[in-house]
Design a protein around this nucleic acid. Structure first.
Length: 152
DNA sequence: GCCAACGTTGGC
DNA sequence: GCCAACGTTGGC
């Protein structure tokens, strides 16, 4: 089973949105490395949900991959901000997964806390200038994040 | 294939 | 609002 960290600006899509909808298509990712990670996800993988560009930034919950290998429909929608006119429907450029809500943490595990517990090499999200919206986590790191998030 | 210009991300 | 980091674009 794989572990991931996925980022979203809560004003665009938040853990509360996912808690309400239960299941969501993780669309709108337009970065090749992030797309490659999305394609590498397997059903059952767990993904921590990170809120970026908010105060405080941090990990706010957990979700689970429930469906993989889905072309991102927004790439073909001219009305979508994620429309990509160069993507060929016969050979889609952007792929994604469906995720299901698992839990919202009682308190966010803030970026500040994450910096206190992890090195940038352990947790790529801490690396200066990192802008990747989907990234893999070592199982050991994921386990520690889960423990920290549930520590009162 | 190089690289400068430009746009976006995201913490602060 | 600023700005560092970094991906993408496009001219050559």
């Amino acid at each position: 089973m794989g572990y991931w960290l996925i980022k979203s600006e809560p004003e665009v899509y938040s853990i509360d949105d996912l808690a309400r909808e239960k299941i969501a298509l993780w669309d709108g990712v337009r970065n090749y490395q992030a797309r490659n990670y999305l394609r590498a996800m397997g059903v059952g993988d767990l993904a921590f949900f990170y809120h970026s560009s908010t105060q405080p930034p941090g990990i706010v919950g957990l979700c689970q991959v429930v469906e993989t290998g889905l072309p991102d429909p927004t790439q073909f929608d001219p009305d979508s901000p994620y429309f990509d006119p160069r993507s060929d429907p016969q050979n889609p450029r952007w792929w994604t997964v469906r995720v299901a809500f698992v839990e919202k943490f009682q308190r966010p595990l803030t970026l500040h806390q994450l910096r206190a517990h992890f090195s940038p090499s352990e947790l790529p999200a801490l690396r200066r200038g990192n802008r990747l919206s989907v990234m893999p986590l070592e199982p050991e790191v994921a386990e520690r994040i889960g423990r920290l998030a549930r520590t009162p």
